[in-house]
């Protein structure tokens, strides 16, 4: 008798929890792939393809699926990698291309006297930051440029150069206090 009771109880419990889980999966159903969205939100959106994917969104999807490592984004650098590690609960990794990550943030500039108006760079720009038309001189809208360098290789006359973004009093950041040239070492100072 008691064996029967146990079996009934367990079955009932299983049924109740099963229903609960079923209900929850319907009630809290989420459309799309929120992880990919969250990853995408952390990426710098340069669309540079340095990670080996066709842009930030494809890379985000690859990370979300677990196909890609989190350390491939060079423009995002360590900050982005750490943010991704935090988000996904993965271990931080050393950057795949530390050299590229260390490059100063830059924007493209067209040496306008050399431009032949071929429009190849226009087609390469992922954010439509280059203005121009066939046989017309092109120019980069600096505020829109993400510094992805995708326009540099297509240029047949090599008239596109990358110019580091100048620091201004508005964008200047206070340096980390220690170690600081402002602080004397005790003992030898």
């Amino acid at each position: 008798m008691s064996v029967l009771l146990t079996i009934v109880t367990i079955t009932l419990l299983a049924a109740v929890f099963g229903l609960l889980l079923g209900y929850a999966s319907v009630r809290f159903h989420v459309e799309g792939d929120p992880i990919a969205d969250q990853v995408d939100a952390l990426l710098p959106q340069t669309q540079c393809g340095q990670c080996g994917y066709a842009g930030c969104r494809p890379y985000a999807e690859a990370i979300a699926k677990g196909e890609a490592d989190i350390n491939l984004c060079a423009p995002g650098g360590e900050t982005t990698m750490i943010a991704l590690a935090d988000l996904l609960g993965r271990d931080p990794l050393p950057l795949a291309d530390a050299e590229a990550a260390a490059k100063p943030k830059s924007v493209a500039r067209i040496i306008e006297t050399d431009c032949i108006g071929c429009t190849l760079c226009l087609q390469a720009c992922p954010v439509d930051a280059i203005l121009g038309a066939a046989k017309q001189m092109h120019t980069v809208i600096e505020e829109e440029c993400t510094g992805c360098e995708l326009c540099v290789p297509p240029c047949p006359v090599e008239c596109i150069i990358m110019v580091p973004i100048k620091e201004t009093p508005e964008t200047w950041r206070w340096p980390f206090p220690e170690p600081s040239p402002w602080i004397k070492e005790a003992g030898n100072g």
Binding site: P44, Q45, T46, G55, P126, V127, D128, E144, T146
Partner: peptide, 16 residues
């Protein structure tokens, strides 16, 4: 600022 810039770039990229 970076975040805003990234958001802006994303919109432009999606638009493109």
């Amino acid at each position: 600022r970076e975040r805003e810039k990234a958001e802006h770039a994303r919109r432009r990229h999606e638009f493109r």
